[in-house]
Amino acid sequence: MNEKILLAIHAREDGESAWVQSQAMESGVMTREEMLAERDALWRMKSYLKQAGELTRPCPVSDPVYIQGFREMFSKESQPSTVYLELDQVMKVQAMVDGETPVSQMAALNQTLESSSPLQSIHRELSGIRQLVAEAGEPTRKCPESPEFYWSQIEKSLVPRIQVRQAAWSGIGWKSWVSRIFGPVFLPAALGVIICLFIGHQLENNPIYTEVQVSSALIDTQSGVAVYFIDDPSFLNGALD
């Protein structure tokens, strides 16, 4: 039998829409007898199921117990809350629980808390969990390594303190000392060198002195006196003028 036609028959007998029936019957081929036989078989099956009905199964617990269980299940945290609070309000209550509310805001906050049942619930919740964590405390944990091995791992990376102090003078230290001493004078010195070079260059191009010819000189180092003999006519002429 064609499966699509069978589905169409079932759809029609189940009262489904014509669209579902046509979708099920699309491109299917089946004789009229086959279709009627399938419809009869389906009717019979449906009739049997209707007559038999579903077995009745009694609830294994008594009504009061069942209702109590339902109430418990529905209460407390398993019950979806329908009360919502603004985050800012909740943060203020938390600050109160943690003792971080400014004194100036304390009275107003107390007043708000007294008049709001949901805020009181938040206060209870936060106080409760804070108290719980405080009561539980932190578990004591022992380091899993032996003291000797633990220390040996640390010791490998420790630089002896005396060496550290020496390093301050020798290794890294000299650079800082050099920069500390010469740093402030470096810039003026560099500027001075540049200016001198510039002036020197200018003087080289435009000398301001007159070369003179010195024929001989007498220098007495003890008395610090030096006598130069000049025989440059141009200089002498100028000097005599």
Binding site: K76, E77, P80, S81, V83, Y84, L85, E86, L87, V90, P118, S121, I122, R124, E125, G128, I129, Q131, L132, V133, E135, A136, G137, E138, P139
Partner: peptide
Amino acid sequence: KIPVMEFNPTSGMERTELRQRVD
């Protein structure tokens, strides 16, 4: 918006067990 929850701590917990559970 913060939903409201009820929480009732330390109902008959032993401290050692409580510490372990909190941890």
